[in-house]
């Protein structure tokens, strides 16, 4: 492999060798050229700065804020969008289009009017035993099995937990999963954006933290909001990871091992 690369009239140092030199490795870099070339020296110096910054502390991890943060921001935005900048508000939904039951879980993006009804639960103020409560509701009322609350109930759903679904390497998809509790059972509403078109389908799973056990909740399509019933009595403190997998129509009911997005359920 050549040690040098040509840019215009000059023969500059090989960029791969420059990168290794910046990391402090011994390299076969063309030191004669480097000594006289401002461009290569600047290149090396700026790469070294990045290495120095990264190594100036322990391995830095990036993590996400709690789900309630976006809920509150979004409430604020909805209020602003209608009150302060009416020209920015999206076309109001007419009374005829508004389906109070089916749309209630996702209204936080809508106009402020539909937002003030208390659908957005202030999650951080909820007390801790939501898991037990959610599980108990599942045990008591979940026996009907397969009944999705949007079809069978007029009760307002309560969001008891949610997960911000973050993309996994190679996939741009992200979204949010909300666990809702009503008097006829619990369900998960999954709202995904950026799912690539597929020949197969996407499937929603609940996993334990170490992925040693998993439960399939059902299929979701790209670009739609899906509400799937939760198995009655499932222990959400154990099955706390929401995982979206890319599946093929191959008749194999197990997880394909290709996850496209994932998030941790939080109260």
């Amino acid at each position: 492999m050549s040690q040098e690369t040509t840019r215009g009239d000059h023969t500059h140092c090989d960029p791969e060798e420059l990168a290794l030199a910046a990391l402090g490795e011994r390299t076969d870099i063309d030191t004669d050229h480097l000594a006289t070339c401002d461009t290569c020296q600047a290149d090396l110096a700026s790469l070294r700065r990045i290495v120095r910054i990264t190594r100036s502390g322990d391995a830095a991890d990036v993590s996400s804020p709690a789900p309630w943060v976006w809920e509150e921001i979004s409430t604020e935005i909805s209020a602003d969008a209608t009150s302060q900048r009416p020209q920015d508000a999206r076309t109001p939904v007419s009374a005829g289009q508004q389906s109070p039951i089916a749309e209630s879980p996702t209204t936080e993006q809508g106009p402020a009017g539909s937002d003030d009804t208390g659908v957005v639960v202030p999650l951080r103020r909820r007390s801790a035993p939501w898991l037990a409560a959610a599980a108990a509701v599942g045990v008591l009322f979940g026996a009907i099995g397969g009944v999705v609350w949007t079809q069978g109930s007029n009760t307002e759903p309560t969001v008891v937990a949610q997960a911000s679904l973050e993309p996994l390497p190679g996939f741009p998809s992200r979204g949010i999963a909300r666990v809702q509790s009503t008097d006829v059972g619990d369900s998960v509403t999954v709202d995904l954006q950026g799912l690539p078109a597929t020949e197969g389908y996407y499937e929603v799973w609940l996993l334990t933290e170490d992925a040693s056990a998993m439960v399939s909740l059902g299929a979701v399509g790209p670009g739609e909001t899906s509400t799937l019933p939760l198995p009655p009595g499932i222990a959400l403190d154990r099955f706390r990871i929401v995982d979206i997998s890319a599946e093929e129509f191959d008749g194999d009911p197990t997880h394909s091992t290709i996850s496209v997005a994932r998030g941790d359920l939080q109260a």
């Binding site: 990036v62 993590s63 804020p65 935005i77 993006q109």
Partner: peptide
């Protein structure tokens, strides 16, 4: 923002950049 879709775009901005903001604050 100019097209009046600012609130939708802002959610994207939040999703992309909130981990960085949060991690710096943390």
């Amino acid at each position: 923002l100019a097209n009046g879709d600012g609130d939708v775009a802002f959610e994207e901005v939040y999703r992309r950049w909130s981990p960085l903001v949060y991690s710096v604050a943390r």
